[in-house]
């Protein structure tokens, strides 16, 4: 990590690359999750594949976790360094006059997403690890849909998820397009990239929120 933090531009690029990787992952995650609303059998099939395919489990999953860790550790490193760069703060600082709230408060939206990830890992990843490796249960390709829907029965969890998705949208509204600038891409394609990033930043979290709300209001009747 120390080698990556030597130059301010290297730090930007690390944030951008890890962020873009997580943006791509969000798209893949959403594609699988939306099948839980439109085709539960497909959801079971794909979830089982993701949960038992060795390439996904032993290569892609560690890479994903590493991507998350690098992104949030670097985010905190940048925040600490940036606070040190202005020791005496302004008595009056009109940040809203020259930059949008989302770009100035990535640390707030990021911290909320990190807290959400802790809950999300507890809800699904810890459950999976326990099911497979601690309790050593046999493979059951049909269990995923019911387990997912059950998770959204409590109102508190659905509300926490939806709030987190709002913060995720705010984070992406700045972060997605910003990662291109960090990697030196600012040309005739930039307006198009910004437009696509804005649509993606709203559509994907909105989609996740719709999935959570849908399952809350459509519980499996026992």
């Amino acid at each position: 990590m120390s080698g990556l933090t030597k130059s301010s531009i290297a730090r930007k690029v690390v944030m951008a690359l890890s962020g873009l990787f997580l943006v791509l992952f969000l798209g893949q995650h959403f594609t699988i999750n939306i099948t839980s609303v439109i085709a539960p059998d497909t959801f079971n099939e794909w979830s089982h594949f993701m949960g038992y395919n060795p390439l996904v489990q032993y290569l892609l999953q560690p890479i994903l976790i590493a991507g998350v860790v690098v992104h949030f550790v670097m985010g905190f490193v940048l925040e600490i360094q940036n606070n040190k760069a202005r020791v005496i703060k302004y008595v009056k600082y009109n940040g809203g006059a020259n930059a949008p709230w989302v770009s100035r408060n990535m640390i707030i939206s990021g911290a909320v997403i990190l807290a959400f990830l802790a809950l999300h890992f507890y809800d699904f990843w810890v459950h999976e690890m326990t099911y497979k490796y601690i309790e050593s249960n046999p493979e059951d390709p049909t269990r995923y849909y019911a387990e997912t829907v059950e998770k959204f029965e409590p109102v508190w969890r659905t509300v926490l998820y939806v709030i987190s998705f709002v913060l995720l949208a705010l984070h992406l509204l700045h972060g997605f397009a910003s990662s291109f600038q960090s990697m030196g891409v600012n040309n005739k394609y930039t307006p198009g990239i910004k437009k696509f990033a804005r649509i993606y930043a709203i559509a994907i979290p909105l989609g996740f929120a719709i999935i959570a709300i849908y399952h809350h209001f459509n519980p499996i009747t026992h």
């Binding site: 301010s8 930007k12 360094q81 040190k84 006059a97 020259n98 910003s178």
Partner: peptide
């Protein structure tokens, strides 16, 4: 860039406030 970092300036987070 090395000198800029040595001087203790912060990291750019692309807020765009500078340009405005």
């Amino acid at each position: 860039v090395r000198q800029m970092d040595l001087e203790g300036f912060g990291n750019c987070t692309n807020t765009g406030a500078c340009e405005v």
